[in-house]
Write a protein that binds this DNA or RNA. Structure first.
Lengths: 145, 145
DNA sequence: AGAATAACTTCGAAAAAGCAAGTTGAAAAT
DNA sequence: ATTTTCAACTTGCTTTTTCGAAGTTATTCT
């Protein structure tokens, strides 16, 4: 990856500064999506070629990892790396700004309140949950699907 | 502006999810740039057509304002709105992630230390300074240029 | 065995970005 | 007073990137 500069904001943008990367990470972090077709069907409808390309780039950059799903062999399970979990504060601040400025936001009031009153605790809770689900190597058989 | 969804992350991305908007805001917030040609010359070299387009869109979205420069009448002075200053935490978190993950980062160690040890204070300092420079309507005659 | 599911690829079309040159109006220089 | 320069755009064209529809391959379900 060739950088336009070593400005930290530019560095972050070179990884996620397109219309889709952050949305894929949102699906992984906040919506519990772990498989290709789940990303396709969720939210804003990425096209499959763009999704494939972004997943590849995110993996190359060490933001996510892929491996065979132990529950169903033909599927690939996508996981977050620590590097990606470190990005959580950025996503959270984006949620706060969006939640405050979009009148028709879908963010629950409760979430906004928690983010305002005790951001550190909220961050820790989400971070711990993500670490348990993504870094342990274990996998829960989600029979609700 | 037509939204793909009311997800707060998507909402934020619809405003700044391109390669240049955040960089222009960075120049305004962290590098003290206030004029068109300063944006052009700083950092990663936007083309003038893209810069013109982004400034227009940011103004339409209420993120920045433009007005005649009182020091030199032929210039236009760009300022941040409160809505944009509210975005500061997002930018700061991007700086932290970029500073931590880019080996060749240009972020001073001192800044990283402060961000880690007392983020709220740092935020407040920057926020107050920005409010004084951008929201007061006053303008300092910068004779260093 | 046939249909459905999952994860991609490929390729043409559309959108965005980039570049060079031109425009407008104020200010500085001659 | 006229010319030159500066600042902030605007326009038109080319290149690059992104997008979307359809096709491919391998696996699993019926």
């Amino acid at each position: 990856m060739e950088l336009r500069s070593h400005c930290p904001i530019n560095y972050t943008l070179e990884h996620f500064g397109d219309k889709w990367s952050f949305l894929i990470l949102r699906d992984l972090m906040f919506k519990g999506k772990r498989h290709y077709n789940e990303f396709l069907e969720a939210g804003e409808r990425v096209s499959t070629s763009v999704l494939g390309d972004r997943l590849k780039k995110l993996e190359e950059a060490g933001i996510i990892t892929k491996r065979e799903d132990t529950v169903k062999k033909s599927r690939i399970l996508y996981s977050l790396t620590q590097k990606c979990i470190d990005l959580l504060p950025v996503l959270l601040e984006m949620i706060i700004w969006g939640g405050e400025n979009d009148e028709g936001t879908e963010v629950p009031q409760e979430f906004m309140d928690q983010a305002r009153s005790n951001k550190e605790l909220l961050l820790k809770q989400i971070r711990d949950a993500l670490a348990a689900q993504h870094l342990s190597g274990q996998q829960v058989d989600d029979t609700s699907r």
